[in-house]
Design a protein around this nucleic acid. Sequence first.
DNA 1: GTCTATGCAAAGCTTTTGCAGGAGA
DNA 2: TCTCCTGCAAAAGCTTTGCATAGAC
Lengths: 141, 141
Amino acid sequence: MSKMTVPEIKKHLANHNIRASLPRVKIYDYLVTYESHPTVDEIYNALVDELVTLSKTTVYNTMDLFAENDVVIELLIEKNEIRYDADIMHHGHFKCIKCGDVFDFDYNLSNADHDALNGCELKEYHAYIKGVCENCNPKKH
Amino acid sequence: MSKMTVPEIKKHLANHNIRASLPRVKIYDYLVTYESHPTVDEIYNALVDELVTLSKTTVYNTMDLFAENDVVIELLIEKNEIRYDADIMHHGHFKCIKCGDVFDFDYNLSNADHDALNGCELKEYHAYIKGVCENCNPKKH
DNA sequence: GTCTATGCAAAGCTTTTGCAGGAGA
DNA sequence: TCTCCTGCAAAAGCTTTGCATAGAC
């Protein structure tokens, strides 16, 4: 059950100067459908059954292309691990250290007190919090 | 010119259940002296002239130990790159995409609007901003 | 003296690169 | 036809592991 139709995905990619191809459309579809902030490995494993000739090289190439063209954001939360988010709106990420799931949350870092950055040109805001989510929290009521 | 004396460093490490050794003291001294948020490679290269038998294995082991015992924070700003910060107080990092330098700035993510995290136990706050610093900004006055 | 840390060498992974074949315009 | 994309194989590079020696207490 996708959140975007294939023509919508094609148009969205074209708007970001990315030509459509089967791997690119399927990868983008996977990202917007599951919103699971997957790694390259997870994307590859999720799609290789359907796209039997898919290679990790293509997934790496595609994710780099998507990131360069602002179609996805690279999430750096755990070391030696890059996750991808197709929601490029300004938001934060919460990672549960028990179940490993990553949730979105709203915040506004640009309102924060960062006078030290006067004179700097700010381009990208990133924020994440680690902790224990409601489902994993034994204190939940 | 160090910001902490060797006895102070030894005591600080001991307070965090870390035994002193020459590599550990020198690495910690390097972190607090230069505040440059270095990578393992940069730490190794900076110290190997003085500690001629130093190995990267030791730097890796030491940084993992420091991170586990809350003596340093791991900064994940650029993919495939881990930087270390001996300032474990809650603060944000600004990385200049031109010169590559990383500066600290104050902020308070805990004041942010993140109702979505009600019920979650929040343990670590991380925030970073990328942009162009004052020195690299051609528009500076 | 005992236990722990160091550091060399080798292994293990992830990621990148080179390139030939194939798909799309 | 021409260009770009794909994906196999190999290379590269960072990080981890095993283990014998060295050092800390």
